[in-house]
Every structure is written in C-alpha cells, then in structure tokens.
Amino acid sequence: MKFNNDEIKKIAHLARININELEASQVSEKLEGILGLIEQMTKVNTDGIEPMAHALDINQPLRQDKVTEADIRKKSLDLSEETDQSLFIVPRVIE
C-alpha cells in the first residue's frame, strides 16, 4: 500500500486535521508501515465467520423514559471558548 500526498491530505481532511506537505510525506511513510502490518490479515480465510463487534454477547439494556438531567448551563457555558446568550458561538455555519 502506497499513499501519495493527495491521498493523505484527503484522509486528513475527512478527519478535520490540517497537514502540510512535509508532514504528509512523513505521515504517509508511517501509515504505509502500519497498513503493511494490517495486510497480514488478508491471508486469513474468514469465510462464514460472523464479525465480532463486542466482546460480550449481551443485549442492549433499555432506560425508562424519565427526565433525570437538570439544566447545567452554569457549568457547560463556562467550559466553552466562546458563548453568547446561552449559545456556543462558532464561525458562521453555511447551509
């Protein structure tokens, strides 16, 4: 598996991480190494094997429909870099 810088940048963009040319080539080298490691999997025959998403085979528990959480704006707004009128402020969202 080989990555060119554009592919690396595309992945970085999908992950919303800025990356420059130099970093891109360093990263691609390391990612290629890791993917090389991962490639070992391809040799394994997994026909008919059920994918395992969880360590334990149990069902999703359900919660009663009750309001249990209070208004925590005193804390939550303080933790943000920018707020106004009880809103979290970000650069303009374009739809």
């Binding site: 106004d84 009880s86 809103l87 979290f88 402020i89 970000v90 650069p91 303009r92």
Partner: peptide, 11 residues
C-alpha cells in the same frame, strides 16, 4: 444565525 456578525450560535 444573527446572534453575532459572521458567526452562528449552537443550541
């Protein structure tokens, strides 16, 4: 929109 110029508020 419209809380502050060029910005959006998140609720």
């Amino acid at each position: 929109h419209g809380v502050e110029e060029g910005k959006s508020g998140i609720d």
